[in-house]
């Protein structure tokens, strides 16, 4: 088994094998498949979520092209920007208390947030799926131990964990990667149990099924069978956890920044830090320094949550909108994951 196989799950894994339907291969992709499957409100929510998320990702990727200035730029050829300037033609969203351009920092901030999301999701998936496979496959004391540890860690409020990790990783000082890793790793720790649970449950179920035996008779390796079948079945629920994982990562990064464990303004742009620095502005009638980074956090998190919410609906036959529910052949086990089941975010 290579890690390549595993990481591919969230993005391009094959469609769940129980689900019928014909068409081009891309229609079977997770999310794409679900968009087709959905109707009405659910489709609206899913598409809205996709659009918001796509905008977030595009802004992050193309930040150097979109942002009028650098995130720590204080002056251009015409001189210094000045602090707390109201929105104008030069500075659409005004400038911050430190004299930075708000629009630029909001745009560059998307990049920081996206990095946190990517690191958090990638590492959670790798660790969670690996542990789930091992635990479910081998069983025994290792399995029991991992289940207990997973349950315990699952109960740990993620922001608190993030604070502790921020102290460990950066001692409170915040280089760009220090801040990103603190947020991403704490989210990883909290979300690993979720991937672990789903994958382990699948492994245990499949291990008991007859085709595993038959495959073995045919000489196919154990690991190959396991990974293939387990991962296929898990693609139903994994995209959902991924979206929750992502929105939680954004909110935790912002929470850290707000508590003063954020990233220094010259190292990278970070929405939570900007919000914290704008607290005094708000009470003095300077609204633009708080509003835009705040909205950016809300919209980014909301995009992910909308996606997660509608994916959850579609995964749960009871909640799937009635019109099309009949099209899905074969009852899927109700293993819907609660979006934000503990939701210990900000």
């Amino acid at each position: 088994m290579t890690s390549g196989e595993i990481t591919s799950v969230g993005t391009a894994g094959a469609a769940p094998e129980h689900v019928g339907g014909r068409g081009a291969w891309f229609k079977k992709l997770p999310v794409v498949h679900q968009v087709r499957q959905s109707v009405g409100l659910q489709r609206g929510m899913l598409i809205a979520g996709l659009v918001l998320t796509a905008v977030f990702v595009l802004v992050a990727v193309f930040a150097p092209l979109l942002a009028p200035y650098g995130w720590s730029q204080l002056r251009d050829l015409d001189g210094a920007f000045g602090a707390q300037q109201p929105p104008s033609a030069e500075h659409w969203f005004g400038t911050t208390v430190g004299g930075y351009d708000v629009l630029s920092r909001v745009i560059w901030g998307a990049r920081t947030a996206l990095l946190v999301v990517l690191v958090a999701v990638a590492s959670s998936i790798v660790v969670g799926v690996l542990l789930g496979l091992v635990s479910g496959y081998f069983g025994g004391w290792l399995d029991r131990l991992l289940v207990v540890v997973a349950d315990a860690i699952y109960a740990f409020p993620s922001l608190l964990l993030a604070i502790l990790l921020a102290i460990v990783i950066s001692g409170g000082q915040s280089s760009m990667w220090g801040g990103i890793l603190a947020a991403a790793l704490s989210i990883t720790v909290v979300f690993v149990p979720q991937y672990f649970r789903v994958v382990r449950a699948e492994v245990v179920r499949i291990k008991a099924e007859a085709f595993v035996d038959s495959a073995r008779v045919l000489g196919t390796g154990h690991w190959r069978i396991m990974t293939r079948h387990v991962l296929r079945n898990s693609t139903r629920t994994l995209p959902l956890i991924v979206t929750l994982n992502a929105s939680e990562a954004i909110l935790t990064l912002a929470g850290l920044g707000f508590l003063g464990f954020g990233i220094e303004p010259t190292a990278a742009a970070e929405w939570g830090y900007d919000l914290q620095r704008s607290l005094a502005d708000v009470t003095s009638g300077i609204w633009w320094t708080a509003l835009f980074p705040g909205l950016a956090i809300v919209l980014a998190a909301m995009g992910m949550t909308l996606m997660g919410e509608s994916l959850n609906d579609l995964a749960d036959p009871r909640l799937r909108s009635r019109a099309r529910s009949g099209q899905v052949s074969g009852a899927v086990a109700a293993t819907a994951v609660e979006p934000n089941p503990k939701g210990d975010d900000a």
Binding site: S72, A83, V97, G99, S174, E264, Q276, R277
Partner: peptide, 14 residues
């Protein structure tokens, strides 16, 4: 960044 108040970052950037 933490001993002389939150404006130190702005002060030194300037």
């Amino acid at each position: 960044n933490d001993h002389y108040g939150p404006s130190s970052g702005d002060e030194y950037a300037l």
